[in-house]
Design a protein around this nucleic acid. Structure first.
Length: 520
RNA sequence: GGCCCCAUCGUCUAGUCAGGUCCAGGACAUCGGAUUUUCAUUCCGGUAACAGGGGUUCGAAUCCCCUUGGGGUCACCA
């Protein structure tokens, strides 16, 4: 039997990192089994602008390279793939349930139900539905319907039963039906509720494996009951642990972003976002661009392989050694029975380390395009197609080497892109090594005249010149070099200084030296 | 509170189903050292965990029970 999995987001306008991990596991399981992966949009509650709400979700999938076999834009034989357009299917299923006596119209006012629920809670007794509407005769029901008395439709839970599932990750889990209230499956306006629509769709789309986060575990007995009532085969279940916030066990949530900013482990990502996103002209404080959302990683210049690698290792491992996995390797190695049961905190440090690894594996041309796009967006370059610009950026990139973990890291090399006078400066270090070191300043002035006349302004001769200069003036390189670097780049350390000088070129170097020695 | 789930280094995890080869392995982070004018990289090395208590057993991280702790969920949301 063909494996068919689905990911069913509700279109909220952003793609949650935890949801992405769930989607990845679904995708992986389908691919691993040469099955089908379906994207279905769970928009049973009323919709606003669908393009705006769905766009970021599809974009996240595309960015990470996860395709879908059926769903929005690609269609498929089990459409439509928007629940808002599947109403006739739900209506029909509802009629069957009503006719078979598996569901009933509940005319009890919501306040009354609420009252009973609270009363039960106060008396510390299990609340189950009163089912008073079940006592109504057909004639009374007809009358109420004719009077337009509002009613919801509830599933009639078989109270003597037990629901047992064999979950791929949790093993056997069971629930006693006598403890369950009858769940509402359709609102008083006739529209279906999540639990119901999901079951109808999962059956219609022949989903074989429902892989979702653990928070849905408590929905499972209702869905199993619904499948039974509808006469469906129940799919197999795999409730994977949810993704927790760094260092904790709490489900990562967009509502807690303010608190995450203070989280010592999470802070790093926020700081990266603050500098890079601001440079790009985004509002770095926007929820949609926080590290809780996939868009953050795309916009700051993470590469898909790094993010994917970090996500797949959250709650899953192949063995006791394998850490680095390409999407291709994941496809071959993923299995549900190696998914762990306890929640896994997103680990920013490890994510960054995966990121660094995959960046180092990225072919130079792709790396260049990534940096070019960043620089263009920030307005640091004008024409990314200009061969001279490309050549220059290429050299800066090579000089940066593995300091470049994200494309956004290119902004740390601002000395190559920012006008001399606008360069920011590490004032503390500058003060210590230049301003309050008059003899070094004197040396730098002498050095300046030599730099002015050196025939070839390239790394090799510059290296020789500087070494010689240091020796002949009995200066320690450790005193001279950082001072020089501070003058030309604003910082005391960085990539190879001689190459930096060469790339900057004589004019800029001299000009910056002048500015620095003049006190600004 | 009811129901359900979970519990190994700071973090992500291997080992748990089929008890011994585990005085617990790997990775990230961290600390030391080597290389590097600096920073980064790379390479070596170190610190660091079975929540607690009872059983069962010749033997328990692994099986059972209890306690504690953490979490999820309890809508005419998804």
């Amino acid at each position: 039997m063909t494996v068919r999995t689905r990911f069913a987001p509700s279109p909220t306008g952003y793609m949650h990192i935890g949801g992405m991990r769930t989607a990845l596991f679904n995708w992986l399981w389908a691919r691993r089994n040469r099955g089908v992966f379906i994207l279905r949009i769970d928009d049973t509650d009323q919709q606003r602008n669908m393009d705006e709400a769905l766009g970021p979700i599809l974009q996240a999938f595309r960015w990470l390279g996860l395709d879908w076999d059926e769903g929005p834009e690609v269609g498929g034989g089990n459409g439509p793939y928007f629940q808002s357009r599947r109403r006739p299917l739900y209506d029909a299923a509802l009629q069957r349930l009503l006719q078979d006596g598996h569901a009933y119209r509940d005319f009890e006012p919501a306040q009354e139900t609420q009252r009973q629920r609270e009363a039960a809670e106060q008396e510390k007794r299990v609340y189950v539905s009163s089912r008073e509407s079940l006592l109504l005769t057909d004639q009374q029901i007809a009358q109420k319907l004719a009077d337009n008395t509002p009613c919801v439709i509830r599933l009639k839970v078989p109270r003597g039963d037990t629901v047992v599932i064999n979950d791929h990750v949790r093993g056997t889990v069971e629930w006693d039906c006598s403890l369950m209230p009858d769940p509402v499956i359709a609102r008083s306006d006739g529209s279906p509720l999540y639990n119901f629509a999901t079951v109808v769709d999962d059956a219609a789309m022949q989903i074989t494996h429902v892989i979702r986060a653990e928070e849905h575990l408590s929905n499972t007995p209702i869905q199993v009951l619904l499948h039974r009532a509808l006469g469906n085969d129940t799919p197999e279940w795999a409730h994977i642990p949810y993704v927790a916030a760094p260092g904790g066990r709490e489900k990562i949530s967009k509502r807690k972003i303010a608190q995450y900013r203070k989280n010592p482990q999470f802070k790093r990502l926020f700081e990266i976002g603050d500098t890079i996103l601001t440079r790009l002209g985004f509002d770095a404080s926007a929820d949609a661009l926080s590290p809780v959302m996939v868009a953050y990683y795309q916009q700051t210049g993470f590469i898909p392989a790094g993010v994917l690698n970090a996500l797949v290792r959250l709650g899953w491992s192949f063995d006791d050694q394998t850490e680095i996995l390409s999407l291709d390797e994941m496809q071959q190695k993923f299995s549900l029975d190696r998914v762990i049961r306890s929640p896994a905190g997103l680990d920013p440090d490890k994510l960054l380390s995966f990121q660094a690894h995959w960046m180092s594996q990225l072919p130079a041309p792709e790396k260049l395009e990534g940096c070019l796009a960043m620089l263009k967006q920030a307005g640091w370059i004008n024409d990314p197609a200009d061969p001279a610009v490309r050549g220059y950026v290429q050299q800066v990139m090579e000089l940066a080497g593995d300091r470049l973990r994200l494309f956004g890291d290119i902004f740390q090399l601002e000395e190559f892109f920012i006008a001399d006078a606008q360069l920011s400066r590490d004032e503390k270090a500058f003060e210590k090594r230049v301003t309050s070191a008059p003899e070094i300043c004197g040396h730098l002035r002498q050095l300046r005249t030599q730099l002015e006349t050196i025939p070839q302004f390239t790394a090799e001769p510059l290296h020789d010149l500087l070494q010689q200069f240091a020796t002949s003036h009995s200066l320690r390189p450790g005193d001279l070099f950082p001072a020089l670097r501070l003058c030309i780049s604003g910082r005391a350390q960085g990539a190879d200084m001689f190459r930096t000088l060469e790339l900057l070129g004589r004019d800029r170097v001299l000009h910056r030296l002048d500015l620095a020695l003049a006190g600004r």
